[in-house]
Write a protein that binds this DNA or RNA. Structure first.
Lengths: 336, 336
DNA sequence: GCCGATCATCGATACGTATCGACCACGCCG
DNA sequence: CGGCGTGGTCGATACGTATCGATGATCGGC
């Protein structure tokens, strides 16, 4: 194994000089720097992470607490993870996975053992068991998602309220005056997942502003219940029905239900959904969606955490940052 | 910060004794052990990972090299990652993510810096740029997937050859004598992804054994090309057509194409696919599938790697282990 | 031509754990 | 009863890096 002492010997300097060349925490002559860099290249030296962590009390590792696998949202989860890992690397941090099935102990463990310098929590819900644990942790933590009580926490999420407004404005602009909102399945609504309420609040507010009528319908994951809600929506929203169906798991089912009623999105019915672009484009009719910008949210979470980590003292200022979504117009909305 | 020295002081023993109680590498009296454990609990001591790694030259971390996001296989990727992380934890290892966009350097970096003790490579393809890099690494590496030349490597994968045979046997047993095989999209076939060839080899061999005719058709990711191949298959495989459609990305498209031809899987056409159970059950007709057991494959990869890590000397015996898949009968196969 | 200041470098030490050799107190066997 | 092995513990040291204080060299100002 090659150590900084070996590098120092080859370069003809002291070990501490090698360290200063690498960190730049003290001025170094051009000449010395070149000799050291040459030696590093020649020996293919890699600083030992354990020793570095021990001496500097920094690991340059971020713990990422990933949620259980519960449904088929998993493709978007993978996008989150991937972007987080890449962004972290661009700040010279690595990502350590912390699975939620270890529960609170897992979080306490990685922080206690000082395996990582900070944490990112994915998919934080309204009442999240992890929140009380991280609240009085002595390392910086960034939450993706907004818990019921975000006091003193650093949170980031998509702006679901704005997403709701965008949907209504788009349909209103297309001439619709009565809109059916196909909610989330009951098991999602029951756990207080904040974003559901925020989305609906945005929808409601925009509906009032635009003088548009709303019809809230229950969502579901199975064909039958989606079909039932769709039928109800078609009956009650006028000659050219309009749907907002934000649950990314139900996109196919909604379109199938409409087709079996003899309706074609973009022709005699309007639909706005929310899912990844690749999924939206694969639908029978390419779906107009709200892009919640998961990549931007995850990248920003990493940026914020890295900022806190570099700051000499992480004064835990409360942060609540919302990333504005954008509408992606495809072919599923029709003007009336 | 609480150190083992603090624990020792509280327990009234030497620091080394604390270490031995924790590792069990030397015998300890019942009494001492209790005192130490009490002190650990009282102080909530967590051994410092960096110091541990430095002294023991082991990090108890496994590097997981995850592939690019290229298609919508991502839900299965997430399943892999999740199972790998959980299984690793059950062996007291943590998982560090290594994204492939760092390329070969990323692998060399984590090994060089001794951030991890070993590696798992996901989604290894026939000609994989990572394989030459890991081949002469001095740490144990387990590949998920089989490269073109697996000599000297430790590989594990689903038994795609057997999967192919299972498909043919099932359809043959149902009375089909001519079977259409809907392949993978051209871009998948072009990169030599071994499992494609292995699957087709299994299909071919079983077809010969069962005296069944085969019709190989091009796959695709878009509606049009899938529809074209399906139409061709329907025309050329007899009164009750039979399809094998292993590409998990095309399951919906195949069913939709059949429906639009007026055919219902399980009634007047047979289809066998391969995808996650949750996806199979969501189809219009619940799909009979080959379960490639991704969870078993990933768990086994971790087990093997942990075995190599615990072994005093990792003599790099070549390993090639295939996990047998299973058929999951649902409703998409009809007897003739 | 001498003195303080600045720059570049060196030597020494600390970080917290694992592990080796040494040590003591037993008990067992001859 | 003496010596030998063994179970249980301690003290000391090594692991590789970061960082502090000290040292020597160089330079400008008077």
């Amino acid at each position: 194994m090659v150590t900084s002492r070996d590098v120092a010997r080859v370069a003809g300097v002291a070990q501490s000089t090698v360290s200063y060349v690498l960190s730049g925490k003290r001025p170094t002559s051009e000449e010395t720097r070149k000799k050291v860099e040459a030696a590093i290249g020649q020996l293919t030296y890699h600083p030992n992470a354990g020793a570095r962590a021990l001496a500097s009390r920094r690991t340059r590792v971020i713990g990422l607490v990933i949620p259980f696998i519960r449904d088929l949202h998993m493709n978007s989860i993978m996008e989150f993870i991937s972007v987080i890992a890449t962004t972290a690397r661009s700040h010279d941090y690595d990502i350590l996975l912390v699975t939620e099935d270890e529960g609170a102990d897992g979080i306490r463990r990685v922080v206690g053992q000082q395996i990582c310098d900070g944490l990112i929590l994915m998919q934080v819900e309204g009442e999240d068991a992890r929140v009380p644990v991280v609240r009085d942790l002595k390392v910086p933590v960034v939450l993706i998602g907004i818990p019921q009580d975000p006091a003193g926490l650093v949170c980031i999420d998509a702006d679901f309220e704005m997403a709701g407004r965008l949907c209504v404005h788009e349909l209103s602009a297309a001439g619709h005056t009565r809109i059916a909102v196909l909610g989330w399945p009951a098991e999602v609504v029951k756990r207080p997942i904040n974003y559901v309420n925020r989305f609906l609040a945005g929808v409601t507010r925009a509906a009032r502003d635009c003088r548009v009528g709303l019809l809230e319908l229950p969502g579901g994951t199975d064909r039958a219940s989606v079909a039932r809600s769709v039928r109800q929506g078609v009956d009650q929203t006028g000659p050219v029905p309009a749907f907002i169906a934000p649950d990314s798991g139900a996109q196919e089912l909604v379109q199938q239900a409409l087709f079996s009623q003899g309706l074609t999105p973009g022709v005699d019915v309007s639909v706005i959904g929310s899912t990844l672009a690749v999924v939206a484009e694969r639908q029978l009719v390419p779906l107009t969606t709200i892009d919640l910008k998961p990549a931007a949210v995850s990248a920003r979470a990493v940026e914020i955490l890295c900022g806190l980590l570099e700051a000499a003292e992480y004064d835990v200022n409360e942060v609540l940052e919302l990333i504005p979504p954008a509408i992606e117009r495809r072919a599923s909305v029709v003007g009336t």
